[in-house]
Simulated assay, not measured.
Amino acid sequence: MFKIFIIEDDKKLSALLSQNLEKWNFITKEVEDFSNIINEFINYDPNLVLLDINLPAFDGFYWCSKIREISKVPVIFISSRNSNMDIIMAINMGGDDFIQKPLSTEILIAKINALLRRTYSYHDTQTNVIEYNGIVLDMKDNILIYKDEKIELTKNEYKILYVLIKNNNKIVLRDDIMRVLWEDESFVDDNTLTVNINRLRKKLEEYGIKDVIKTKKGQGYILS
Rank of each mutant, 00 (worst) to 15 (best):
T119R: 00
F98S: 01
I78K: 02
M85I: 05
L16I: 08
D189L: 10
D138E: 11
T127Q: 09
D59R: 05
K23F: 14
T127P: 07
D189I: 00
T194G: 06
N92R: 13
A90S: 08
K214N: 12
I151S: 08
S121L: 08
S71R: 01
S186C: 11
T154F: 15
N84A: 07
I67P: 03
K140I: 10
I78S: 02
Y221S: 01
G60N: 02
I7T: 04
L16P: 00
L55P: 15
Y122K: 11
N191R: 15
V73C: 11
K159A: 09
I177L: 14
W63F: 04
K29W: 11
V172K: 00
N167E: 12
N25M: 10
G220M: 04
F34G: 07
S65Y: 08
I209R: 03
T105W: 14
I76W: 08
K66G: 01
F5G: 06
D176P: 03
W24P: 00
R118P: 05
P56C: 09
L144T: 09
D184V: 02
P102N: 02
L13S: 06
N133P: 04
K111R: 15
F26I: 09
A90Y: 01
T105F: 13
E185A: 01
I109N: 04
K166R: 09
N54E: 11
K203S: 12
I78Y: 11
V172R: 02
L153H: 12
V129M: 04
L21C: 06
I209L: 08
N142V: 03
F5P: 01
N36H: 12
V49R: 05
D189E: 15
I7C: 04
K12M: 15
I160V: 13
L48N: 01
K3F: 12
V180E: 07
I112Y: 02
L137H: 05
W182G: 03
